Amino acid sequence: MTNRMILNETSYHGKGAILSIPTEIKTRRYKRVAVVTDKSLMELGIATKVTSILEASGIAFKVYDGIVPNPTIQNVKDGVEFIKNYNADAIVAIGGGSPQDTAKAIGIIIANPEFNDVLSLEGVANTRNPSLPILAVPTTSGTAAEVTINYVITDEGEHRKFVCVDPHDIPLVAFVDSDMMMGMPSSLAAATGMDAMTHAIEGYITNGAWEMTDMLHIRAIEIIGRSLRDSVKGGEKGREEMALAQYIAGMGFSNVGLGLVHGMAHPLSAWYNIPHGVACAALLPTVMKYNKEFTGEKYRDIAIALKADGAENMPLEEVRDAACDAIVQLSKDVGIPSTISELGVKESDLPQIAEDALRDVCTPGNPRKTTAKEIVELYQKLM
Rank of each mutant, 00 (worst) to 15 (best):
A17R: 12
E236F: 14
L350R: 05
S348E: 14
N70F: 04
S131W: 02
K289D: 09
G335H: 02
Y86N: 11
L119V: 08
I6F: 03
G107W: 02
G234W: 11
I59Q: 07
D230L: 04
A17G: 09
E24K: 13
D155K: 03
N255M: 00
M184C: 13
Y290K: 00
D166L: 01
G96M: 13
C164A: 14
A326I: 12
V118A: 05
G79D: 05
A93G: 13
T154M: 05
P315Y: 06
G277S: 06
M182D: 01
Y64S: 06
Y86D: 14
P367Y: 08
Y64P: 00
E377K: 09
T127H: 07
E146H: 14
K289L: 00
L7R: 08
I83H: 09
N70K: 03
A357W: 13
G263P: 12
G96C: 14
P138D: 11
S331D: 14
D89V: 09
V232E: 09
L284I: 06
V287I: 10
F162W: 04
Q352N: 13
E114H: 03
L44G: 10
A190V: 02
T295G: 00
K369Y: 12
K233P: 01
K237D: 12
R359C: 09
Y272D: 01
A125K: 06
G296S: 07
C324H: 04
G263K: 14
A196L: 12
A144Q: 10
Y86S: 13
S141H: 14
P130V: 00
K161T: 07
